[in-house]
Nucleic acid binder design. Sequence first.
DNA 1: GACAATTAGATTGCGCGCAATTGAAATTCG
DNA 2: CGAATTTCAATTGCGCGCAATCTAATTGTC
Lengths: 152, 152
Amino acid sequence: MARKQSALDPQRLDNQICFAVYSAAHAFNRVYKPLLDRLGLTYPQYLVMLVLWERDDVPLKDIGEKLFLDSGTLTPLLKRLEAAHLVRRTRSSEDERQVLIALTSQGHALKEKARAVPQSILAASDCSVSELVAMKDEIVALRDRLNAVIGE
Amino acid sequence: MARKQSALDPQRLDNQICFAVYSAAHAFNRVYKPLLDRLGLTYPQYLVMLVLWERDDVPLKDIGEKLFLDSGTLTPLLKRLEAAHLVRRTRSSEDERQVLIALTSQGHALKEKARAVPQSILAASDCSVSELVAMKDEIVALRDRLNAVIGE
DNA sequence: GACAATTAGATTGCGCGCAATTGAAATTCG
DNA sequence: CGAATTTCAATTGCGCGCAATCTAATTGTC
């Protein structure tokens, strides 16, 4: 009875999905770290590169919308990527408020070196692709419901 | 065909479970923030309090093992909780290396004020309890497999 | 055209997370 | 016992995340 009680107690750490997500994110980060170290990237920098490898010459704002990050995070991060000669930051001539992010040739070239990363992650997950896709879709749906609440 | 290709491309942002987890963690944090602001806690501080509400007078190391955090994160965090009069930090007399963390009366009292938090999160998730529990268990299992890989 | 409101990005400040290092206490082992 | 090793916490340094504030450019309204 006491066991059943604690298994339902919403104030217990082990019963909180948020802690599951929080701790899984850190676990992923620890798996990614040695892989990304070889590329000279942090995980958030890798995410920005993924966006740019899909579409180049993108406004900072668009990157922020895809990654759910604001300029307070992205501005210094992009300056570091620029210092690493992976991207260039230029003001848009049509709208001087916007900063366009473009890959350098080194930035493009890094895509090939990064190709092995997802396989390594898949292997570490020790899980079938279809299972991972199903989980991913569930988590994305949950995330989107949470984000919907934030806008009130 | 091109669509099918991109739906399977492991190098696309939208196909990465890690980004799903990463962005869901941030979404959770944004939902928690206004709730925890009222308690004067950050989310990691709230996690520490959850641990202490389950068992008081715990070594720092044990908190770290439950939350997957090290002393580099916990030492300053616990100093802030101590400055807020929620915990006390004392060296163990049996083992002078250990620091024991104990709740103050204010720390105990905060548990009642925090009782409404999980319900608010559940409401924001817009999802049944059983669905959340199932997702949580899957994510925990994935996290544990990832953590197992890190230890080689 | 002028002026208010909006939008994009930069900046500042603070709290994580974590690697790496240090120092002290406890344990192991010869 | 005594030296080497291990363990625990603290510290330093760096890169996020994000709130809050600021500046400049654009848009909307009259």
